[in-house]
């Protein structure tokens, strides 16, 4: 449901006061990626155009943040207490990394927020011996599997970081391109630059409830069969215009996230 992705930050922004999330403006390195993805059910709309979003991989020593441009700008706007800009993200997650762990932050149905901590070294990669060329950088291909998708990634040792988009951070180099077998998600590195901007300390956010990966997947499944009406009824609320039939938006089931980055 495309709607719930858009509201991820709106809800965060409403509930999280800006001072809770410690932040400072400092210098760090920003690696920009372009994500081309298909967040829809391909059986229903096989010819729909994929979406394109810009992602930031902000790196400061052994810590990094992988977040879409839209979500990052919303955080900044909230800090400055301004209205957010025009860029919206349809991705419901963002990821941070601290040394040997990654933490995935995600919202379900716009009201519940969860985070999952996992070690960096979870995906098993098989490296191909051949080297290829990616925009004048020498890269090697590796293949691994993550939650139902087979990922092919290209990493380079020419960038002295062990980093990459999403959870692909345990390869012997810097991942410049990652795509899944169906080409539903394609991350591609564009450029890197030194920036002086806000760096967010996400570890201090207690709005996100920590759960295990298995629990998060279970919560998503449970939520898929609910509708907005049911969520409101759970809190004991009622629609204001009670006499009218509730609109389709309220009674439609959320459904499973169409074509998520991790299937299970």
């Amino acid at each position: 449901m495309k709607k719930y992705c858009c509201f991820i930050v709106l809800c965060l922004v409403l509930v999280m006061p800006s001072t809770l999330m410690a932040q400072q403006v400092k210098d760090f390195m920003r690696y920009e990626y372009m994500l081309t993805y298909k967040p829809f059910d391909k059986k229903i709309t096989p010819n729909a155009e994929p979406l394109i979003e810009k992602f930031y991989l902000d790196v400061d020593g052994s810590r990094s943040l992988f977040i879409s441009e839209g979500t990052y700008l919303e955080f900044v706007a909230d800090l400055k207490e301004e209205e957010s800009g025009t860029i919206e993200s349809k991705i419901p997650w963002f990821l941070s990394r601290d040394a040997g762990d990654t933490v995935l932050y995600e919202m379900i149905n716009m009201l519940d927020a969860y985070k999952v901590k996992q070690p960096v070294n979870t995906i098993k990669w098989t490296i191909s011996n051949e080297t290829e060329n990616f925009h004048n950088m020498r890269v090697q291909k590796a293949i691994g599997e993550l939650s139902g998708r087979t990922w092919t990634v290209w990493f380079t040792t020419e960038i002295p970081l062990i980093e990459g988009p999403y959870k692909f951070k345990n390869l012997p180099g810097f991942v410049v391109k990652a795509k899944d077998a169906d080409q539903d998600y394609v991350f591609e590195f564009i450029e890197s630059k030194k920036v002086n901007n806000y760096w967010f300390e996400l570890s201090e956010l207690d709005f996100f409830k920590e759960v295990t990966d298995k629990q998060l997947k279970r919560l998503k499944n449970l939520n898929a069969n609910k509708s907005y009406m049911q969520i409101i009824q759970e809190t004991g609320g009622k629609l204001l215009n009670d006499s009218k039939e509730p609109s389709e938006f309220m009674t439609k089931k959320f459904g499973k996230e169409p074509n998520p980055i991790e299937f299970y």
């Binding site: 390195m29 920009e32 372009m34 394109i52 810009k54 790196v59 800009g85 025009t86 860029i87 990616f134 925009h135 950088m137 960038i159 002295p160 970081l161 410049v176 590195f189 564009i190 450029e191 890197s192 630059k193 030194k194």
Partner: peptide, 19 residues
């Protein structure tokens, strides 16, 4: 200290940030 360089791989696709 690991020196990180600025790299420009390809031009960002044109995204209109107009209102």
């Amino acid at each position: 200290f690991t020196q990180l360089e600025e790299i420009f791989v390809k031009a960002s696709p044109i995204t209109q940030h107009n209102d």
